[in-house]
Design a protein around this nucleic acid. Structure first.
Lengths: 238, 238
DNA sequence: CGGTGCTTTGAGCATACTCAACATCAGTGG
DNA sequence: CCACTGATGTTGAGTATGCTCAAAGCACCG
C-alpha cells in the first residue's frame, strides 16, 4: 500500500517537457540514437572526448566527478528531460551512470552545434537547459559550503518533493532510488551522517521511512523550515 | 618592487576576449550601457527582476547567494570577459558586487534573447559562457563537498595562477584583491581556517606572503600536488 | 602618531568523521 | 517456503578536524 513504484507512476505520467518540445530540436532527431541503460551502467566517463550530448528520456542518472584517490562528488541527479554533457568544451567534465533503468538519447555534438547555429529554438533550448543547470549548481554550492547536515538532507527531500509535484505526483511520497552513499556523495557528507539525519527527521515526526528508499513526508512545512535553516524546527516538531 | 598593481597590469594587457569577440554580439552594442562600479558597490541583488545581463569589461566582481540568517556563499569571482546573470530565468539567482573598481556593460535581456534568436554567433557565445561557468561550478562542488581546507586554498591559488597565466601575466605573482572573508565564503570555510592555511603554505615554503593580498608562489608544482589531494606534499615541502 | 579594520594566532570545544557492531533487506538455493 | 548470504543501512563510541571566542599583530588612513 505504501510502496512507491516509480515505473508505474512514470507510465501514467503525461509526456515529459523534452518530448513536448521536440519540434525545437530542429531536425536533430534524424541524427539521434536512443539506448537503454541498466542500473549502475556507465553512460559516459570523465575525460572522454565530449562528442555527444545526452538527453534523458526516462529514469534517473547521476553525474559525478571523482578524484584520483577515490573521493567522489555527485554534481547532480538527472531526471527526464534533463540534458547531460553541457558543461564540457572538449572533454566530458563528469562521469555519469544510471541509477534506475534509464532511456537516454544521444546526439552528436557537431551536429548539435551545427543545427543550433541555424535553428534558434534549439539554441535557446540548450541555453535554457544550461541556465537552469547552472542555477541548480549554485544552489548546491550554497548547500555544500554553508549548510548543516540536517539542512542538506531536508533540502534534498524538498527538491525531490518539488520535482514530484511538478510532475503531477504526490509531493509527500518520495522514491529515493539512489543509495545512501550516492546521497552522501551528493551532499558532501558520510553515509552515517546521512542516515542519522533521516533518523532525526523520522523521530521528529517530519517523515516516515517505510523502507530506506521510500520517504513519506508527514510535515512538509516543517521540512521546508529545516531546509531554510530553521534548526529549531526540530525541537518544535518533537 | 614586489607590489602587484592590478590596474596598471590591466592597462598593459591585450584586449580581453570579450572585446575581441564583440562582432559576435550581432548589433547588441546599440542597446548596451556601460557603468563603473566602486569596490563593495552592489551590481545586482538576488531576487531582482532579471531583465539585464552583465558583461564584465574590467575589474573583479563576486557573485554570491545569501541566506536569511546571514550565511553567504560566493559562487564565483568574475573576471574580465565573464558574463553575469546567466543562471536565472526570471529572478536573479545571485547578488553581485564589485571587489575592485570594475567596468560592467549591461544588456537588456529581452534584446539579448531577441538577437540571440536571430544571430547564431551571439547564441553560441552565450551558450559557451554558460557552459564554462557550469564546468567551473561543478569543480567548485567537488571542492566544497570533498576537499580539505588546505586543498581548497591551494586550488584557489592555482586557479588564480592559471588565470594570470592565460592573461599573459606571471603565474607566480598573484593579486588577491578580495578579503579573507570573501575567500572563506567562497571556499566554505571560516576566515581563521583560511588564514591558517595560508600560514601553513608559507611555513612550508610553498608561497610567500609579502602582504595579505599578495601571494608569490615559490613552488607551483607542490601547490598543484596539494590542490590535487596530495596532502603529504606538505611534509616533503617542509 | 593613534585609531580602525583586517588578519593572524591561540585555546577550547562542538560537530561530523572513523571505526566497529548490529540490523535489515534482497536475492539464491536448498 | 525458509534459511543462508552478501549488500546496504542504522546505531553507537571515540576522535580529529574545523569552528568559536578571544587577544594580539599589522597595515592603511587620517
Amino acid at each position: 500500500m505504501l510502496q512507491i513504484n516509480q515505473a508505474s507512476v512514470a507510465a501514467r505520467r503525461p509526456l515529459p517537457s523534452l518530448a513536448q518540445e521536440d519540434p525545437e530540436l530542429g531536425g536533430l532527431e534524424a541524427y539521434m540514437s536512443t539506448r537503454r541503460y541498466q542500473p549502475r551502467e556507465r553512460v559516459c566517463d570523465q575525460g572522454d572526448r565530449a562528442d555527444v550530448v545526452y538527453f534523458v528520456k526516462r529514469g534517473l542518472l547521476k553525474a559525478y566527478k571523482a578524484t584520483p584517490d577515490g573521493r567522489r562528488q555527485i554534481v547532480g541527479f538527472l531526471h527526464e528531460g534533463d540534458i547531460l554533457g553541457l558543461a564540457c568544451e572538449d572533454e566530458q567534465a563528469c562521469s555519469a551512470e544510471a541509477v534506475t533503468e534509464a532511456v537516454v538519447a544521444r546526439a552528436p555534438r557537431a551536429r548539435l552545434e551545427q543545427i543550433a547555429a541555424r535553428s534558434a529554438p534549439l539554441g535557446s533550448k540548450l541555453l535554457r537547459a544550461a541556465r537552469s543547470e547552472l542555477a541548480r549548481a549554485q544552489e548546491q554550492m550554497l548547500l555544500l559550503g554553508r549548510m548543516s547536515p540536517l539542512e542538506r538532507v531536508a533540502s534534498l527531500l524538498l527538491r525531490f518533493s518539488d520535482a514530484a509535484d511538478s510532475r503531477g505526483e504526490d509531493p509527500r511520497r518520495l522514491a529515493l532510488p539512489m543509495s545512501r552513499l550516492d546521497i552522501a556523495d551528493h551532499l558532501g557528507l558520510t553515509i552515517e551522517t546521512v542516515s542519522r539525519c533521516f533518523t532525526k527527521l523520522r523521530k521528529g515526526r517530519i517523515i516516515d521511512l517505510p523502507r530506506a528508499s521510500d520517504v513519506v513526508v508527514r510535515n512538509l512545512d516543517r521540512l521546508a523550515e529545516l531546509a531554510a535553516g530553521d534548526e529549531d524546527g526540530m525541537a518544535r516538531a518533537a
